[in-house]
Simulated scan of single mutants.
Amino acid sequence: MTTEKPQGLLLAGGAGRRVQGRDKGLLVWRGKPLVQWVAERLRPQVTTLTISCNRNRHSYDRYADRTVTDFPEQESRGPLAGILSLAPFVAREDYLLVCPCDTPLVPEDLAARLVAALESRPDLAVSYAHDARRAHYLHAVLRGDCLTSLPQYLQSGQRSVRGWYAQLATIAADFSDCPDAFANLNLGDNTE
């Protein structure tokens, strides 16, 4: 089992279609922006924290070690484009923890549990959370070397995270003890 923590990538680049085009990560919940909640949960679990955002970069800078944006040719390609934007900073042997910006209750041991699942077999490329009700593909740890297949997948016109994972060796990590931890807060008009 690795003793190193993974790098962290917080995905905040979405168009915010379910929240009337607002920047989801900056929506306030219980007195803080969603991105702050998630960043505070992830920070102790990772070596560095990067936020992938395509707007309001200056607002996200305070919550991460660095911010990145999608490559111009990948615009509108969804969360996989956000993951690809970090590829230049991830070595083949690194682990990368991925998490969306709108799940403020993510487990404080998310990285450790996903890394343990990933290391259960040497052939695995991705471990993702499963809460016994559904898979949470964007709560995942990826081996750095699997990112080499991502540009070709996106260039083929594909955008599905699950579809990309289907080409890789993956494992679902059991988070059935904390299903509410993955509640996706598309707040709409319910901000505080």
Rank of each mutant, 00 (worst) to 15 (best):
residue 47 T to R: 13
residue 161 V to T: 14
residue 66 R to S: 09
residue 126 V to P: 03
residue 179 P to Y: 05
residue 125 A to N: 12
residue 39 A to L: 00
residue 146 C to A: 15
residue 169 A to K: 14
residue 64 A to G: 07
residue 139 H to T: 06
residue 142 L to R: 11
residue 181 A to D: 04
residue 154 L to Q: 02
residue 166 A to G: 13
residue 72 P to M: 11
residue 136 H to Q: 06
residue 129 A to H: 02
residue 94 D to A: 13
residue 4 E to C: 11
residue 61 D to C: 11
residue 100 P to K: 07
residue 136 H to D: 02
residue 9 L to R: 00
residue 82 G to W: 00
residue 50 T to R: 09
residue 87 A to G: 03
residue 159 R to Q: 14
residue 158 Q to G: 00
residue 117 A to F: 01
residue 17 R to K: 14
residue 30 R to L: 11
residue 16 G to C: 10
residue 69 T to F: 02
residue 184 N to E: 12
residue 138 L to R: 08
residue 140 A to L: 03
residue 159 R to D: 00
residue 149 S to V: 06
residue 96 L to A: 01
residue 51 I to V: 14
residue 7 Q to A: 11
residue 188 G to Q: 14
residue 91 A to M: 12
residue 136 H to K: 03
residue 184 N to W: 07
residue 114 L to K: 04
residue 35 V to P: 02
residue 62 R to F: 08
residue 81 A to H: 05
residue 143 R to V: 09
residue 151 P to V: 06
residue 169 A to S: 15
residue 52 S to M: 04
residue 79 P to C: 07
residue 102 D to W: 12
residue 143 R to A: 07
residue 165 Y to V: 00
residue 166 A to H: 14
residue 22 R to Y: 10
residue 67 T to I: 09
residue 56 N to G: 08
residue 180 D to A: 11
residue 62 R to T: 13
residue 19 V to D: 14
residue 34 L to Q: 06
residue 50 T to Y: 06
residue 127 S to L: 04
residue 43 R to K: 15
residue 169 A to I: 09
residue 131 D to V: 08
residue 154 L to S: 02
residue 83 I to M: 05
residue 36 Q to C: 10
residue 168 L to S: 01
residue 100 P to G: 09
residue 26 L to E: 06
residue 11 L to P: 00
residue 82 G to C: 00
residue 173 A to R: 07
residue 7 Q to E: 07
residue 166 A to R: 15
residue 14 G to H: 03
residue 6 P to G: 01
residue 14 G to N: 06
residue 44 P to A: 05
residue 7 Q to P: 03
residue 8 G to Y: 04
residue 98 V to F: 06
residue 70 D to C: 11
residue 147 L to I: 09
residue 120 S to C: 13
residue 61 D to I: 09
residue 27 L to T: 08
residue 69 T to M: 13
residue 158 Q to M: 00
residue 38 V to C: 00
residue 38 V to S: 01
residue 29 W to S: 06
residue 155 Q to L: 13
residue 148 T to H: 13
residue 98 V to E: 05
residue 128 Y to R: 03
residue 135 A to S: 13
residue 18 R to D: 12
residue 118 L to A: 01
residue 123 D to S: 15
residue 53 C to F: 05
residue 108 E to G: 12
